[in-house]
């Protein structure tokens, strides 16, 4: 049996999360087929065909997949799923939105946020905000898995190209329409894929302070910017900056937490980072319990000094 992976893209470029999901698929057995569904997405299909381990690309190019709504996509994937042992998506906003719908249409369970693959039917996943790890065995014939991308290596190019097969589109259900999409534009690396993340919390006090103190530091380090829930709720930064249990899960080489106290929900999103640095004026802040290097200091002095020193 083969594995079906659903590629995430914006009709022009493939999202990095798909490369890690492919890395997870390499831990399973069988050919790997990748579905590229979109509108005007041929270039994405060709790019996917170059990736290591991909044996076939299923290209489905139709207007109803342009905005990647779950309803139409789920119908399409439901029709394909029967021929596969596993169906994989990244555990991104899109993957989380789509895969449960497909699994339910097939009357099968989904395993969310897989961080370990023990065998073809047994998987490890975090529960309780990562405070426990559960090993679960799926007894359904098709395993629907959303993959926590930070837990798997990303996959590179193969050197040869897999076949690209064009497949027929499913129905346009007409259930839903995209009205608007406001994506944060940034020259900085994507939060999920960044090597270094500078993240700010309530301690910054305002959006102006956040930008004034953290942007120069992030610029100097070539880092992505993140935030705690408190900073997002207070309106310092947009929602897509949030790192945590219900925001983005990150695992960069260096995570610099500035003015973040370290609620367990935040730690759940960043504790797999290689090196964690915390700057906080409260020596009892829980963030220091997970930090490799803690600096007890006023962030308004320490962060600019750090920017100067590197």
């Amino acid at each position: 049996m083969a594995i079906l992976l659903i590629a995430e893209h914006d009709n022009q470029t493939l999202k990095a999360a798909t490369l890690n999901t492919l890395g997870a698929a390499h831990h399973l057995e069988g050919e790997i087929h990748v579905l590229v569904a979109g509108a005007g997405c041929t270039a994405v299909g060709q790019a996917v065909a170059q990736l290591s381990g991909v044996t076939k690309v299923l290209l489905c190019d139709a207007p109803q997949y342009a905005e990647r709504g779950a309803e139409n996509l789920a119908e399409l994937v439901r029709g394909l799923a029967a021929g596969y042992s596993h169906v994989l998506v990244p555990a991104s906003a899109e993957g989380k939105n789509l895969l449960p719908r497909v699994a339910a249409l097939c009357d099968m369970a989904q395993v969310s946020d897989v961080v370990g693959i023990e065998s073809t039917d047994t998987f490890v996943r975090p529960i309780y905000a990562g405070n426990a790890l559960a090993t679960v065995k799926s007894i359904d014939p098709i395993k629907f898995l959303s993959i926590r991308t930070t837990a798997f290596e990303s996959v590179g190019l193969a050197g040869t190209a897999a076949a690209v097969e064009t497949i027929a589109a499913g129905p346009e259900l007409g259930l839903c329409k995209l009205v608007d999409r406001e994506l944060t534009r940034s020259e900085r690396p994507e939060l999920g894929a960044a090597k270094i993340i500078v993240s700010g919390g309530r301690g910054l006090g305002s959006g102006d302070n956040y930008r004034r103190v953290l942007e120069p530091l992030a610029d100097k380090l070539g880092a992505a910017l993140g935030a705690s829930r408190a900073a997002v709720d207070a309106g310092f930064v947009p929602n897509d900056f949030q790192v945590g249990q219900t925001g983005k899960i990150v695992a960069p080489q260096l995570y610099l937490a500035v003015g973040i106290s370290g609620a367990i929900q935040h730690l759940a999103g960043m504790k797999d980072s290689k090196v964690i640095v915390a700057i906080n004026k409260d020596p009892d802040a829980p963030i220091f319990q997970v930090a490799d290097y803690g600096l007890v200091a006023d962030l308004f002095e320490a962060a600019p000094a750090l920017t100067q020193a590197i």
């Binding site: 790890l133 559960a134 490799d292």
Partner: peptide, 17 residues
């Protein structure tokens, strides 16, 4: 889904100040 086991994740030890 059958839960085979539930364990605590590896603890991250506090580093240095």
């Amino acid at each position: 889904l059958v839960t085979l086991k539930v364990v605590e994740p590896a603890k991250r030890s506090a580093g240095i100040v």
